[in-house]
Each structure stands twice: as structure tokens, then as C-alpha cells.
Design a protein around this nucleic acid. Sequence first.
DNA 1: GTTTGTGAAGGATTTCACAGCA
DNA 2: TGCTGTGAAATCCTTCACAAAC
Lengths: 226, 226
Amino acid sequence: MASGAGRRRRTQIHYVPGDVPEVVVQRLPLYVRVLADFEEQDMQVVSSEKLGTRLNMTPAQIRKDLSYFGRFGKQGRGYNVNNLVSTLRNILGLDISWNAAVLGMGRLGRAVVAYPGFEPEGFRVVAAFDNDERLTGSEVGGLRVQAMEEIPSTVKSRNIKIGIVAVPADSAQSVIDALVKAGVRSVLNYAPLSPKVPSSVKVRSVDPVLALQSMTYYLKNPADVH
Amino acid sequence: MASGAGRRRRTQIHYVPGDVPEVVVQRLPLYVRVLADFEEQDMQVVSSEKLGTRLNMTPAQIRKDLSYFGRFGKQGRGYNVNNLVSTLRNILGLDISWNAAVLGMGRLGRAVVAYPGFEPEGFRVVAAFDNDERLTGSEVGGLRVQAMEEIPSTVKSRNIKIGIVAVPADSAQSVIDALVKAGVRSVLNYAPLSPKVPSSVKVRSVDPVLALQSMTYYLKNPADVH
DNA sequence: GTTTGTGAAGGATTTCACAGCA
DNA sequence: TGCTGTGAAATCCTTCACAAAC
């Protein structure tokens, strides 16, 4: 122990996970995304002002968000792009890759398996499940489709930490229950329902229809100001 | 004027759109969804308690949300399922159908055009756009792929109110600018960026990668309590 | 007895504004 | 001078708790 003496130690200190508001955690990936873009453009340093402009957020919010995790900036200069992006990736666990299973091999599940956007971000779809016996045993995107009964063993053997649920609404809860029982604590849910999970499990739902249905309110009631 | 005398008039009164918090509007479609399900099961009446159980929300929040729009319940009984679902549909503008255009005919855009979940909810994809000349003129899901230059005229002639953006990140902003210029005020964005739009325009982004990237935080830092 | 609708309280999140540092 | 980090203030959102209604 007795950590590094070096020069001035400035970064990496505090951050007690439990103290960080969930909204803040949900914004961190946005920061990572623009920072990665700035990095690609060989930008060395960036201010909260510039990040805010790019993300349509106030600079104060960005500074406050980052302050939950440490002190990463330099007064008068801003943030070192490379440092900040790699620190945030580390905080979020994006510096390692995560194995996921896709549940449901219908139209949507197949699209998810074929989706090329996960792999480059470190998410690997390593298993595919479906309850239809006409599908189990067949291949989808290089994966053998397995029966749901195999969830517990495969989750363990393949070190699966994330379940991506693409089954119909009426079977989603039972599939999620099975995932949770098998130890999965992160669920990306494409089914149109609000699943019940223990508080130790995170669910994020992706639902374009819900998104549309709240926008029509504003189409119907054009706000005078907003 | 001098509105209905009848018996007691209870419902449908107030609601000044500008006063309703956006979070509340975003939850209304959730209520519509469960109510529609209850309706299908021939349930006549439902309490905020039951709705809350189904949605993992407190009954108080549901009652408060609904109270922004009127007084729809009966003390001691609850809400009439049929009434409430149709009132909420009306408030949200879900009692009419909306025309949408899909922009970008790559893998994702094609999937969106083929997606069977929009039509039954009253969202019609009536136009498809792409800038690649090898695609324009061809057919995708029964739609002729049009060049982006045709956005203004087609938005008007086909009464398009919603743009669904499925182009790469680097062309998304310009496509959205074109939509906005053409009068579109609702954008469903699949591209990985935070687009800039005037405050009169609503954007909702669908991004499974962002959703995953914030869940890994909790995988990495299992909360003691939460 | 049950459940709504809602002021008031409480909690969470955002923004302000400025001391302090580069 | 320029910009961060952060307490304090302001705003926003949720929950409480209870009178009123059925």
C-alpha cells in the first residue's frame, strides 16, 4: 500500500459508487462518446463549455457530474481529452469487454444478433436463446440457438453478464426471471413491459413506440414557449 | 358556449399543456399501455395502487401525474379503464394516426421500415429517404426511396409530422436540419449523437449501446444497498 | 371501508456564482 | 486571464398524508 508518491497526485481519488446519482451515471457514456470523437480529431484539451455545446448541456452540469468521481481538470485549461476518456471508460467498466446473451430469435432478436454496433464497444453476443423447438439447434449469426432451459448453465460457462431480451411481452417476465436467477444483473429490454426485478438488477428498456407516443403530445399541443 | 349543464361535470377540465412537466408526459404512454392490457382483460375499474404495482411506481405518482390533466377517478373505486385509456389517448394525440418518414436506408433504416410495431399504434411510415444514388429510385418495403432533396416537398405533400433518423452519425445533423426546415417537429433519432434542434422540436434518441454502457457501471460496482 | 386529488413536505437535480488555481 | 470544483440557492420532482367522495 502507501500509494504512489510521484509528483502531485491529483486524480483518481474518491467516488463511492453508492453516492452517485443514477442520472449522472447515465450521462457518463455521452461524455465518453464526444470525448472519443474529440480524441479522434487529435484535440488535446477540452473545456466543460465545449463539451456542453456539443451535448446541449450546461458546463456546470458536466463539471458537477465529473466531480462525483474525482478532479480531472486543470483550472484555466480544461480537461485532457485522452486522460478523461480513459478515466471515464475505466469508471464505467468500458475498458474490458462484456459477454451478453440475446433471448428471443424472432425478427428483432435476429436483428440484435446481427447488429454491428455492439462489438466495437466491447459488448459480445456469445449466446442465443429461443423457446421455439423449430429454432433451437439452428444457427443464427454463427450462434447455435439454445433452449431457455440452458440459460443457467450457459450464463455460467460463458460468463454472461448481460441479457438482451427480445421475446414477446407475454414471455418477457419469465425470461427475465430466469436470467436473474442465473445471476445476470443487467438487462437490456426490448419487450413492451416494465419488468419486475430485484433492486440489485438494472433494466434499461429500448422502446421506439413509447418515444413516439410522448412526442405526439407536443405535436398536438405546440408549446407557446418551451 | 355556457358549457354542459347535465349532472355533475367532473372530468376533462383543465390542463394547460405548458404546465405539464415533460417527465409526466413521458409516463403517459406507459399508463396507456397497461390500461390497454387491462381493457383487453375486460377489467372495468382500476386503482392507482394496481397500476403502480404493474408499473413499479408509487400510486401517489400516478395520481399526481393524472391530476395534471383532470379528475378521472372516483373515490373508493378507482378509475374506469375504458374512460381513462381513451382520455389519455386523446391527450397524447394517439386517437389519430401520424405519418412518418424514415431517413437512411441502410441496415437499420430497412429494419425500421419493416418493423411491424409502428402501424398498429397509429404511426405510418409513408416515405423513405437516402442519399446514395444507388438506392434512390429503388423500393424498400413498398416505398420508393427518395433523395434527401425531396424532403421539403414530400413532408408537405404527404403530411409528414415525424422524422425517423437512421443515417450515420456524421450526416444525422444535416438530415435533421433538413427535416426541421421542412416543418417536422418530432424526431426519433437512432444515430449516436445529440442533435441540435430549436426548442420547438422534440428529439427522442434510441440507443441500446448507451443503455448498456451505463449498466456496466453497476456490474463493475455492485451497490451494497441501492 | 376504499381510493381519489392535492397541498405541503421532502428529496433530488440543476444552476449559480465565485474562490482558487494554472 | 481562463476555467475548474463546489458550496449554496434555486428549481424540479416525488412522496406524504389526509380531507373529501363514493
